[in-house]
């Protein structure tokens, strides 16, 4: 049932969903603002590159410059009054928000009555959404760990000395795109799917589709090895007699290595192709140590694996790419 605008309104107006609704406006705004600053600097950089004479002057920011002005201002009051103003504005926003919308309070906790849908707080819905595509140990433990470690690794991987302390797109294309894909394209999109799309049973409901607690889905998700019809028939002839009963399992586990390796190589080639596209990125790439390069490849290949898996699940209904008795991916 589409066209149920009331359903959409119920989701949007749920008090705990307000932050993500606000983020729908704030994130595009700040993205635009960042690019606005970036492109202004990029125009200046292009101008300076074209005119070496100008590059020797103080004309190195997009802000107005006057040699008679002092380079530094007193913190009190020139910075502090802005901080005070920001604090007042935030207080007003918070007061208005707190006076108009009540914090949610459901029935008392009851282990025998399951909430449907049972959702995590909005900022963790990306991880909960990940549970749909990965086993819990990946979605709940490995992915968050990799996100945290990966974020902390950024300054040590990024060998590009340009763009330190000023906005620029032209000089940092790869870094900017990597972050946009990771933060907005994956994390925030998954949070939005978890907030707006997932309904009762954590099933997929398009916007304006009515939530139906009685809905039952019959999706047949198949493993990649099933699609390729891996049954271990030929493996039986090679294996020693004691392992023959497990031929199917072993064949699947062995087969699963193939798509993983193929994906890894393909993703690595794709990343390599991107890194080699411009003269400057080749220069930066050459400067990186082996450890930096390897770490960057591992994190980027892993990050790209998430949208690939989501695509395979949603479009081709593939459950596991690699199934073993101990873990499945």
């Amino acid at each position: 049932m589409f066209g149920d605008w009331h359903q959409l309104w119920v989701i949007i107006s749920t008090p705990d969903n307000i932050p993500i609704v606000a983020m729908l406006g704030l994130v595009p705004f700040f993205t635009w603002y960042a690019f606005h600053n970036m492109l202004a600097n990029d125009r200046l950089i292009a101008q300076l590159e074209a005119d070496p004479q100008l590059a020797r002057t103080h004309h190195r920011t997009t802000y107005p410059y006057n040699s008679r002005w002092e380079r530094e201002l007193h913190t009190n009051p020139f910075l502090m009054r802005k901080e005070l103003l920001a604090a007042i504005i935030i207080t007003i926003i918070l007061m208005v928000w707190a006076l108009t919308l009540n914090a949610p309070l459901e029935e008392p906790a009851n282990a025998s009555v399951t909430m449907n849908p049972a959702k995590a707080p909005w900022y963790f819905l990306g991880l909960q959404e990940m549970l749909e595509y990965f086993d819990p140990w990946i979605a709940g433990v490995i992915v968050p760990t990799l996100i945290i470690v990966g974020l902390m690794a950024i300054p040590f991987i990024d060998a590009n000395p340009l763009g330190n302390g000023y906005y620029t797109y032209h000089q940092r294309r790869h870094a900017v795109w990597t972050f946009l894909i990771g933060f907005e394209g994956l994390w925030l999109v998954l949070v939005c799917i978890g907030t707006f799309i997932r309904g009762p049973g954590f099933m997929w409901y398009w916007p304006t589709q009515t939530w139906d607690p009685d809905r039952v889905e019959f999706n047949v998700n198949r493993n990649l090895d099933q699609i390729f019809g891996i049954n271990g028939n030929w493996l039986v002839h090679i294996l020693p007699a004691s392992l023959r009963p497990e031929a199917v399992i072993i064949a699947r586990a062995l087969f699963g290595i193939i798509p993983m390796v193929v994906y890894g190589i393909a993703a690595a080639l794709f990343i390599h192709w991107i890194c080699m596209r411009t003269e400057y990125s080749r220069t930066v790439y050459r400067k990186m140590s082996i450890l930096q390069t390897v770490t960057m490849y591992i994190f980027l290949i892993t990050m790209l694996f998430v949208p690939v898996t989501i695509f395979l699940r949603l479009v081709f209904r593939i459950k596991y790419i690699w199934e073993t008795p101990w873990f499945s991916i």
């Binding site: 932050p19 700040f30 960042a34 918070l94 707190a98 914090a103 302390g165």
Partner: peptide, 24 residues
Amino acid sequence: WAAHLMVMAVWLHMFRVFMSGSYK
């Protein structure tokens, strides 16, 4: 709501720091 705002502010702060290359 301050808790929610803080989560939003932290994320956007990280976004700003990244976009201005301030982690270098």
